[in-house]
């Protein structure tokens, strides 16, 4: 079983992000359970959404405390939430940010993706979720970019769907280049 946590603020589409990830796995014939945890129910309040994935139906209903993958939609949350120590050993953190992050834990990998920048260019609004997901597909190889694109187009109809799919592809390419440079 793989576990993924989305770190965002209420209004930043954490649930949508989790549902698109779950939907991508579903398209690859996996079982997924995507669910939110609401906090104070106010715009801007920190909130998490979670995804569990497995070859078998998911039965576990608790929140996720130590994810394999952490998707940080809003990097300012890292001031109040210790994303790095939450993440499982050997796990991967993908941060929507233009800046680099220092890590005092050896066995976690960090990737920063300027996802809001990508979204501003493509959509005209700083909604980096789908670019982060493109990067997630490239880095984790958990889901293909094709199933991600198809899950995005199912969630967002028409032009906004097309633009989000472009964001995903750009995030995907950016992360592939990052990985290539790394090697």
């Amino acid at each position: 079983m793989k576990e993924i946590t989305v770190y965002a603020r209420a209004g930043q589409g954490a649930i949508t992000t989790a549902v698109i990830v779950g939907g991508s796995y579903f398209k690859e014939d996996k079982f997924a359970y995507a669910f939110p945890h609401f906090g104070a129910a106010r715009m801007g309040a920190p909130m998490n959404a979670f995804i569990r994935v497995d070859e078998n139906p998911i039965r576990m209903r608790s929140k996720i405390y130590n994810p394999d993958y952490a998707l940080v939609i809003d990097a300012t949350l890292m001031k109040s939430q210790d994303v790095f120590s939450d993440t499982k050993d050997g796990g991967i953190v993908i941060i929507n940010s233009g800046k680099e992050y220092e890590l005092d834990k050896d066995n976690i990998k960090i990737f920063t993706i300027p996802a809001n920048q990508i979204a501003l260019e493509v959509i005209g609004r700083p909604l980096g979720n789908t670019a982060v997901l493109g990067a997630f597909a490239a880095i984790s190889k958990e889901i293909t970019i094709e199933s991600l694109e198809s899950a995005i187009l199912e969630r967002f109809k028409g032009e906004i769907g097309e633009k989000n799919a472009v964001c995903a592809h750009k995030g995907y390419q950016y992360a592939l280049d990052l990985k290539a440079n790394e090697n």
Binding site: A18, V19, F26, A32, F35, P36, F38, P57, I58, R61
Partner: peptide, 12 residues
């Protein structure tokens, strides 16, 4: 049905 856990949970 359990609130949030099932009502807001997406599943196959």
């Amino acid at each position: 049905m359990d609130g949030y856990i099932l009502s807001h949970g997406y599943e196959n």
